[in-house]
Design a protein around this nucleic acid. Structure first.
Length: 555
RNA sequence: GCCCUCGUAGCUCAGUGGAUAGAGCGUCUCCCUGCGGAGGAGAAGGUCGCACGUUCAAAUCGUGUCGAGGGUGCCA
């Protein structure tokens, strides 16, 4: 990237100035490069001379002048200026900028891709909501974060696998099964109570009725325990199918659905117990088996096997992650969790140490919970009490692209309010349409050009000298930097802001520059502008694809 | 009580220690005899919760404090 090249160029200039005696000797720190706030300051700026001031015992401006004096030539570099109190501002050369249109056209779909990851194997696990109920809006945030992050990491050169962990074992599943049995029996006129901590949601009533309709009363004539399990299997399948279809609707896809149960069937649980025992990380007290997380920095010890003999959820977590790292060989694993799981982070890190794995290889992204509101009133949600607003409901009311953009355009650690009434009202004003509109507008221009029989084949990009043309190219050139930023900070929300800036630059260009001109004197310019427009379409489409938002040809 | 995250415009939110703190929505002006007006130009709107501190430089780092959310189960 230009940004990195430029940083190296400045570093070399500092060292050269030192050799030539224009600057005193000192150890050169890394050179920071930033985008200046104001466009007329240039494309890039470095405040490094102010950091150098105490080292060189010179005024920052003097240092900057010495650095600029020794700056090597580069084809991309235009004007270089020193500004108070000691910035060096760089402007990209126009000829180089216009040439980038060809570069983008040649790169096509791969424009914006980088090789930061060097093929490192990374797994992103997201949503993984219990299949005991429909997905909520909170899961939607998880889905959007995870899916977009996976896109970004793939673009940044990682080998990415997307996984959904299906909690199809344990207490919650048992409660789900028992609840379903009760609702099924009730649907057939039996007086069967819902268990104490069962799932009270109306969707369970519907599920019971549905299964009663499809299968009749055959489960009532079976052994009760067998019936509960058989019904559970049917219910699980239906719940999973619902979850899948909700995620599909939002454009969220997976490479793998991993079953918790399989950990026990495949013997991973037994394996990790042996490892933990041999490592001395196990204690038995109060009739339960504990993982000694505290001595590994885990905050407090954790029960692995309950006094009932059942493994707890943490046992599954350990076996699951052992499977990820040791069995499947991921170099890096990213789990995306809601803030209600933040207390698990220390014990997860402790688990890594106990398994002899570098804790750095596991990243837990904690996103703050979504506060749902309706007309300013907070809506409390719980799957168990049945007071839920499903993701599907919101997707249907507001539309997948708008929901996705809304959820994506916020940093994971911002506590966000989602007002359903407001979301519905504003869905028509959602910035996502602004971005999509620019894409559709380009498509329309291209259709028009085709009708007029004009092509871009012989376009000479050197003709693109209008300020709005150059401004658009400048925006297009930011995509790789945004991908790098989003990948390095695990923060896909930057894409959403970038997309708006890019669309804005296009709209301004459109206002200022007629693309398909009927004036024969403009024939060459038309061809050049068609190239620009084609390139802009590529960059917009690539950005939208990373966000998981559609790039429509028409709206 | 202790731990984690957050507090920026009327609302929803951006802002890798650097220059005059930004966007969208909302409000108010203005702009179509050519490619999509779901657009463009402009205005109003801020003690960056508060107080100390570190730094040449703080919305950003540290401490304290107030407020919001979450955690602190042999539930997940």
């Amino acid at each position: 990237m230009i940004k990195d090249d430029l940083a190296k160029l400045v570093e070399k200039a500092i060292k050269k100035a030192q050799r030539k005696g224009d600057l005193p000797k000192f150890k050169v720190p890394p050179v920071p490069l930033e985008r200046p706030k104001q466009a007329d300051w240039g494309d890039y700026a470095t405040p490094v001379c102010m950091q150098l001031a105490p080292l060189a015992r010179m005024a920052p401006v003097k240092i900057a002048e010495a650095v600029v004096k020794h700056l090597a030539e580069a084809d991309y570099l235009g004007e270089v200026k020193v500004a108070h109190p000691g910035f060096i501002n760089f402007t990209l050369a126009d000829e180089w900028l216009t040439q980038q249109v060809e570069t983008i056209l040649a790169a096509g779909e791969s424009y914006g891709s980088l090789d930061l990851g060097r093929g490192k194997k990374v797994q992103v696990e997201y949503v993984s909501a219990n299949p005991t109920g429909p997905l909520t809006v909170g899961s939607g945030r998880n889905a959007v974060l995870g899916d977009s992050l996976a896109n970004v990491l793939a673009a940044a050169g990682y080998q990415v696998q997307r996984e959904y962990y299906v909690n199809d074992a344990g207490t919650q599943m048992r409660l789900f099964n028992e609840t379903l049995y009760a609702r099924y029996a009730q649907a057939l006129g039996q007086d069967e109570p819902v268990p104490e901590r069962g799932y009270r949601g109306s969707y369970m009533v519907e599920l019971g009725q549905q299964i009663a309709q499809e299968h009749g009363d055959k489960f009532l004539r079976m052994d009760r325990q067998e019936a509960i399990e058989a019904l559970g299997e049917i219910g699980l399948k239906k719940m999973l199918a619902g979850i899948r279809s909700d995620l599909e609707l939002m454009g969220v896809h997976y490479d793998n659905w991993f079953s918790e149960r399989s950990l026990y069937e495949d013997g991973y649980f037994a394996q990790i117990m042996t490892i933990l025992r041999q490592g001395g990380h196990i204690a038995e007290r109060e009739g339960a088996v504990w993982f000694k997380a505290k001595e590994l920095g885990g905050g407090k010890d954790e029960v692995i096997i309950r006094s009932t003999g059942e493994p707890g959820y943490f046992a599954s977590d350990i076996a699951y992650h052992y499977n990820k790292f040791v069995e499947r060989g991921f170099d890096w694993v990213i789990d995306i969790w809601g803030a209600d799981h933040q207390g698990h982070v220390p014990r997860m890190k402790a688990m890594m140490r106990a398994l002899g794995l570098d804790p750095e290889r596991l990243t837990l992204i904690i996103y703050q919970l979504v506060t749902l509101k309706r007309g300013g009133e907070i809506v409390r949600l719980s799957k168990r009490t049945g007071d839920i607003i499903t993701l599907r409901e919101v997707l249907e009311e507001v539309g997948p692209d708008a929901v996705r953009f809304f959820l994506l355009a916020r940093a994971a650690d911002s506590q966000m309010d989602f007002d359903l009434d407001l979301a519905k009202e504003e869905s028509a004003e959602n910035p996502v349409y602004y971005v999509q509109y620019s894409h559709a507008r380009i498509a329309s221009i291209l259709r028009y050009a085709q009708e007029q029989g004009v092509t871009s084949t012989n376009g000479d990009v050197a003709l693109l000298t209008h300020p709005s043309e150059l401004a658009l190219i400048r925006q297009m050139l930011k995509l790789p930097e945004i991908v790098a930023l989003a990948a390095q900070n695990l923060a896909p929300h930057h894409l959403a802001y970038y997309a708006q800036e890019l669309a804005a630059a296009f709209h301004i260009f459109y206002r200022d520059c007629r693309v398909v001109s009927s004036d024969p004197a403009d024939a060459e310019l038309t061809q050049a502008r068609l190239k620009l427009v084609l390139a802009a379409k590529i960059v917009l489409a690539n950005t939208l694809r990373l966000m998981g938002v559609s790039a429509p040809e028409r709206m």
